[in-house]
Design a protein around this nucleic acid. Structure first.
Lengths: 226, 226, 226, 226
DNA sequence: CATGAATGAGACTTCATTCAT
DNA sequence: GATGAATGAAGTCTCATTCAT
């Protein structure tokens, strides 16, 4: 399970029974381990994702994140300029990982309808393997604001995704496997359908994700295919 | 007590179970409620929507809301139990208004494809008439949490909407205007496509909303119609 | 004594034996008195002066100031934008009070040497009546910095004082009671001598302030008078 | 241990009372101290002076000082017990250097008025050669506090300076070059005038320092000389 | 010895909520 | 009822100091 990479202080595999004066029942002492920069950053980002996924953006205080990571509060600010920076980097790193997880083993040279069906299936699979990431990224993207109150992320950040999908759709149209339609509207709709699916299966755990993905592929391809 | 009106779900705008003293008329009767009270509540909710739409959920302090409403800070808590209650009721009231705005003049007895196309157009029109409401409701729904950290709203609140749409789709299938498909998946997808459209046109002001709505209707109906 | 205007929470004349659960020996409860804006500001500034005079600029935390004023921490920020603003206003208000205390009953039309001697005496008297103010203002002026690290006060703020003294000196020179000298250098020197006196008697409590003032007047006038 | 050198007062640069293991030479012998150590200490003190002069006492974090000195943060505490110790020793060492710079080439056997005039000129010259030192020492002396909040330096540390000046003044009075006056008051005033001059020229860079020094000597000697 | 990652106390500040007026 | 002064908990962030490497 992705959630168990060893960031939880309570499950720390070798917190010893440290000699601390007069608090023998208190929480385990911190052995002050020294880690490489990248490892620490990843650990803190992972804790951020988990805390946000669980308690929402507002509940993700620096305190909660540090506690979840099993580090001291002050350590956060050695690796991130401030909380905004931490959240921003958590999103950026996690989105990259999600994109990789979708793109992996996806044969983009296959017939376009096959690519689309496979992509939907892979996206659906994320709900099982990256539940916290999906939840957290959603929260942060919707909540993070710059100092002047404007959203830190907006749909402009989706532009690259839209363009890639439009390219795919256009190839399908040229190859004759897709009928003519407005590719931008279709890209936005496609992305919206994926996001809706992920939100739906996240809050309806009894739903068969694979079946949903297949049904969604049927619905979308029925609208696209010639 | 005035602070406890409208209880649980987006689809339940008229929940009972509160001590509203002796109001034996129907919900449309507005019996003994003093006008000033409802006006004040609406005024505060309106201010809440505007402040949230502008500065996001986190930026919507009670101070800012009271100032925007032109009332004193203390007055908020005469009409709402606490900030959570204020936000919840702002969503409930506004969603109701949005639903009314879509449903108005919508002839549900018309042929199903016509209903769908009309509904998409009406939803798109909201981006011009209810921009703040759409933004604010989105913010609050994504951000509001209960005391234990769990989301205050979830997709369960969409259940009523899904059921209504499924009913419509099923009639189309029975009448032969729509082809067979999983109505729940289609309902979720349809709603996701609408939400994606609204978000897209909100952050891309130069887009022609009507044209987008028509293109979306084309895309969706191509996937649904026989 | 100037220090006993009733700002000290512990000496609050009517803190009652409040019914607080299970802490019958703790500090007296706060009756939440409501005060006019000017009174509160003066009270907080007074507390600031006392805390700075006693523990220095660095020891004057917002916590310490609020506690000394007998108010809650948060109240400070209703009356002052931030700590810098609080310190700035404390200096401005106190310097004005000090200047008034020196200027009062000073007959500026008297012969110049008499004015100078009287002014030195009055300044010396401040060491008895405004000890905390003198200490605190000195601390803050030397310590307060703007966000970019540059001093918040500098000798430019003395310019008005220098000009006034130069005017006085020049009158003395025109009237023939003072000999020719560089009035700017004399103004700076005069001010330095006053400040040195105040610092000296502050840290040497056994010194006879009046005698020092007379001796200083002798020394300075010997250098000035024709 | 090297971290505890020079103890208490500005006028006492060689205080004993610390455990320096087995150094039976006189204070001028520099017996077993390794050269590298003193170089490091001087380097760190120099960095401290520069950082304080530039950003003030509060802006002089251990981080900034270490960075300016080009050493690691942890190294500071090998040479100084804590930050208070570092600041104290920076003052002590720098004041000693400043005193040397004034005393150098000063012929104390010359006629007293000549000595005074020369001393004023030399002090004025410091504003060109030791600007950072003057600023930093001023900052630290005014800001440094002991753990209980009382000033770490006070005018008692000037006592040696006052005594030396009084001795000089008294010789002048005995020799007939100076008229009778209170030598302690004159010493305090003289020092105050010097400090005021240095502060003034520091914040008024366009002033001709030499001319100021001559004018100040005129003013002071006019008050002292018979 | 030297480094700098890590800690933890404490600083300033915001803000939902209470309550004297 | 209405106001906004007052409270106090909680948040983000800094920094002197420690200590594993």
């Amino acid at each position: 399970m992705a959630a168990a990479r060893g960031e939880d202080a309570l499950s720390d595999p070798d917190a010893p029974g440290e000699a601390r004066p007069a608090t023998p029942g208190g929480p385990a002492a911190a052995p002050r381990r020294r880690l490489g920069e990248d490892v620490r950053r990843a650990q803190i980002i992972r804790a951020t994702i988990l805390v946000v996924a669980e308690g929402g953006f507002d509940g993700a205080s620096a305190n909660a994140i540090a506690a979840r990571a099993g580090v001291s509060k002050g350590l956060l600010w050695r690796y991130f300029a401030d909380k905004h920076d931490l959240m921003r980097q958590a999103v950026i790193g996690t989105v990259e990982a999600l994109r990789d997880a979708i793109a992996a083993e996806l044969d983009l040279t296959a017939p376009v309808p096959d690519v689309i069906r496979a992509a939907i299936r892979r996206a659906a699979a994320l709900s099982g393997t990256h539940r916290e990431e999906l939840r957290a990224v959603n929260q942060i993207i919707h909540s993070l604001r710059t100092a002047d109150g404007s959203p830190a992320f907006d749909l402009g950040d989706y532009e690259g995704t839209y363009l890639a999908q439009e390219t795919l759709f256009r190839r399908g149209q040229e190859e004759g496997s897709l009928r003519p339609f407005d590719t931008r509207v279709m890209a936005v709709t496609y992305q919206g359908a994926i996001d809706a699916m992920l939100a739906y299966v996240d809050s309806h755990p009894q739903v068969d994700v694979g079946a949903y993905a297949d049904a969604l592929a049927d619905v979308l391809l029925a609208g696209m295919a010639r």
